[in-house]
Design a protein around this nucleic acid. Sequence first.
DNA 1: AAACAGGCCTAAA
DNA 2: TTTAGGCCTGTT
Length: 314
Amino acid sequence: MGTEESDMKSVICEGYDSAYGVPTLTLHQMDFFDISQIFECGQCFRFERAACSSATYHTVYEGVAFEKFLRVAQSENSITLYGVTMSDYLAVWRGFFGLDEDYAAIRKEIRDAFSACGGIDYANKISQAMTDASGIHILRQEPWEALCSFILSQNNNIPRIKKIIAALCEGLGTPFEAMGRVHYAFPAPEVICDAGLSGLAPFRMGFRARYVLDAASRVCDGSLNLAALQDQTTKETEAALTAICGVGKKVATCAMLYGLYKLDAFPVDVWMRRILDRDYPALADPATLGRYAGIAQQYLFYHERENTQKEKLA
DNA sequence: AAACAGGCCTAAA
DNA sequence: TTTAGGCCTGTT
C-alpha cells in the first residue's frame, strides 16, 4: 500500500548533532504524525518523554527498540532522529514509525467503514476522534517484545508495566552504549527460559511471570514461531497465541496489532468495551470495521483517555 | 484501608 | 457456555 508515494511527501535531510556527536535525520512536512500521541497511547512501554530545552523542538522522546537507542525530537511539522543514518532509517525506523503508510487514505477508509456500520452519526463520531488524535501511528514493534509486554499488562497499570519491563531489560537484556549512556535490549526468549521463575522473581511480575515463561519456552522449543505468524491470517494467529498460558483474546489481539502489524486486529479491553457500548451500540463485531480496524481502535482509545483526563483536571 | 489496575485461569453451574 | 473468585504487586 502506498509505500514510495507517501515517503515522497516528506523531505528527508541528513545532518550532524555536535552536542551528542551523532548523525541526525530530519523529516519535514510530517502531517498526521505526533510523537507525543504515538508514545502516550499505550502501545509502547519503552519510550519516555525526555527533557527538552531546544527552541526548535517542543517534544523529545527517548527509548530502545530493535536493540537500538533512539532519541526523537518534534517541532511543529518536522521530526529529528538522533544517531540515525539514512540506512538505519530505511532498515528500522521508517517501518517502526509506520512512515510507509498513507494515513490520510487510511483515515478515509476508517470513516467509510464506520459509516457503513452506523451511518453518518458513527462516521462523524469517529472523525472527531481522528481529528483529536490525528498524530497517532501504530508502531511496528518487535513481535517477542510486544507479546511479553502485553502479557505483563494484564490486570496492571501502565506505570507499573513500564517499571517491570525496564527492570527486566536491565536485569536480563544485553547492554550497549549509545549517545554516552548504557541501554539494554529486550531480553531474548532463550535468556528468559534460562532465567526460569527464580530468575524472573526480582522483576516483580507476580502471577504473570509463569505466563511470560510459558511464552518464552514455546518460542524456544519451536512450537511458537512468531515470525511465521506474520504471514498467517488474524484469526489463525489468534488461535496460535491464545494457546500460550496467560494469553487470552485481549492480549493476543494486542500482540497482533502492535507486534505482528496486523492492522485489522481490534483489542477490546475494559475501556474499549465502555466506549463501544456507549457510542457505537449498533456495532456488534469490530471485525466488520475492515483492514484498519486496529488503527481506529487506537484513535478511539487515545481520544477517550484525553477527554477523561481533561474531566479530572476540571 | 480497601479498592483498583488496559485479563486470564479455574472451578462450578 | 457462561459466570464468579482469586491472583502478585504497587498505588491511591
